[in-house]
Design a binder for these strands. Structure first.
Lengths: 342, 342
DNA sequence: CTGTTAGCGCATTCAA
DNA sequence: TTGAATGCGCTAACAG
């Protein structure tokens, strides 16, 4: 019945002073030994290290942080609007970030950005740097954070901020050219919204592919479904109103492409025989839909790793200029485009 | 060219002393005003609060933590073996945990558990409590952590530890009974491994359903694929060697069920006409495979929320007894079981 | 090479 | 009701 007080320390924490006492030296000597600072007799150092180990000494990170102004924590913020739909995408990036940070002794503070507010871990000053994921992060927010601490953007870029992005343009162009290679010339572009910079770039890649093959761009073949859960349905409803149906669809992301496949099948249209489809992201669903989706592969793990490395470089002052990593992509060919099944 | 030192403070941080000076009181009074401790003249308090706000004062969490032994950080550990496959599962749980913690002023430190070692954030003593996800967390690890700090298990239970789990038994039983309702009496159970406690419970549910309907359990209808990426293929190879093919398959998780569907289709067997299939998890893939998978729905967000609340209760001493939350499940019926398509 | 001193920024006794 | 003193555990100047 009695209320318990938080964190009852079972064993008294051993501090640097305990180690000092046991080793017969001063706390500062222990500190130096532990951190490898300054010169000192090797035997003294080793003895201290041994005793620290024997005593099970763990430096208190809060005390250390308070004294050094380094907390060894990195914030990772994900815009709430990406949550349900791109979960597996950012999940993969998150894991990769964590792996790099962990190896370097850093910790990852995960937070969801709601209402375009800065993550609380940043506001409170708990983190040494921050990685922001997704295109929905507002420019003003980025600007505000950038002057407070080192920052890296993932899957988004903004002038003046370090970023890791994919080659949206090149990826889209390759995908569309693949469809063109299958003989298609009437290719629709299905997208949530062109106001999203990534999608806009993919759109440009789509246009470039058409142009490169002497196909006239037709704005009637661009279908926007809007930023909502049912986006693909809205877009496809418009699609079906088209007089001459395109023979292929390029979805600006897997979500739209898969929605397109579903809508086509429901309408009794065969994929890829009647209409071929390709997507962008190559996410978890792509191999599992019927037919398996041909899609531009986005190297999510690599993005995460690069972002983490970039941020660490920033923190360590190894990076003078703000740089943007543009990762090249590859097209994962399955059968929705008309290729023989994988 | 010149190396930069980490974290150049653009603006000098305002401390509690600055506020004290500006308010003409002592630091301790400011501290009390800010934390609402002790009695004090309301007007004094409000004045201090106002000044603190005007000065943009942010309490330094490290200093606070050092003094109070509370860091307002919660560790969330996920076993590495769950990573690729259950990514969207734990992603959903993670988000829900973050939401609750954020609302309560806590931070989430995400870490992957590799080699069954305790998360570094726990070892270093950076977190006030920890949530462990997945059945692959070793018992010894849990035991070790439990005596160090408050702990909650998700999707796994172990005597003596607080946990949030789903009704594996009931869910499996419901799914199998649904298949029985479709007239099936020869129902296979396809699973990665029965040595996993969750799968074992689902197995028991499967048996119970059979028994409840007077169907003799046949161990030849249990197919284990092992714990590997190609698990479902291994299991299904054994499946096809069966003399009399079952008319239905219950997969211990979506992964196995979807693998089964794929294998059946590749073998020219129609789903659900020739063989019906049901799974467990109702993950992101379930609605997208062909035919859409009937699956036991696991309320991932709810699991995360409960786990977070449980841990906070533990931290605040609101909880005397170690409790296990068993969430009830529901069967999401699609068409792989033979029901008219949703 | 090592010990002493003085903080880091806050909370919390104890007096007043 | 408020202030002064002390300490949380560690690092970093400065002496020695």
């Amino acid at each position: 019945m009695g209320t318990r007080f938080p964190s009852i320390p079972i064993v008294m924490k051993v501090t640097i002073r305990d180690v000092a006492k046991a080793a017969g030296v001063s706390p500062s000597t222990v500190s130096r030994a532990l951190n490898g600072k300054g010169r000192m007799r090797p035997e003294t150092r080793e003895r201290i290290l041994r005793i620290a180990r024997e005593l099970g000494f763990r430096p208190n990170p809060l005390a250390k942080g308070l004294a050094t102004k380094m907390n060894y924590c990195i914030g990772v913020g994900i815009d709430a609007r990406h949550l349900p739909i791109k979960r597996s995408f950012y999940g993969a990036v998150l894991e990769a970030i964590e792996e790099v940070l962990d190896r370097e002794g850093y910790h990852l503070v995960f937070s969801v950005i709601r209402n375009a507010e800065a993550p609380r871990c940043v506001i409170e000053g708990r983190v040494d740097g921050v990685i922001l994921m997704g295109t929905d992060v507002r420019g003003e927010l980025v600007e505000k954070l950038r002057e407070k601490l080192p920052l890296v953007l993932v899957d988004y870029h903004l002038p003046g901020a370090a970023a890791v992005v994919t080659d949206n343009f090149g990826g889209a162009k390759a995908a569309v050219e693949h469809l063109i290679g299958h003989g298609h010339r009437k290719i629709a572009f299905v997208v949530e919204t062109l106001s999203d910079p990534n999608f806009k770039e993919r759109f440009e890649g789509y246009r470039a592919a058409l142009e490169a093959h002497g196909i006239l761009f037709d704005e009637k073949l661009v279908f926007e479904g809007g930023r909502r859960a049912e986006s693909s349905r809205f877009a496809m409803e418009k699609f079906f109103e088209t007089r001459e149906m395109p023979t292929a669809i390029f979805g600006a992301n897997d979500h739209m492409a898969i929605g397109a496949i579903r809508a086509l099948k429901e309408a009794g249209i065969r994929v890829p025989e009647d209409v071929a489809v390709a997507g962008f992201d190559d996410g978890d669903l792509a191999p599992h839909v019927t037919p398996p989706l041909t899609s531009v592969h986005v190297p999510r793990g690599e993005m995460g790793r690069r972002a983490a490395v970039l941020l660490l470089d920033l923190l360590r002052g190894k990076l003078c200029t703000v740089k943007t990593d543009i990762l090249s992509i590859t097209l994962t060919i399955r059968s929705s485009c008309g290729c023989g099944s994988t």
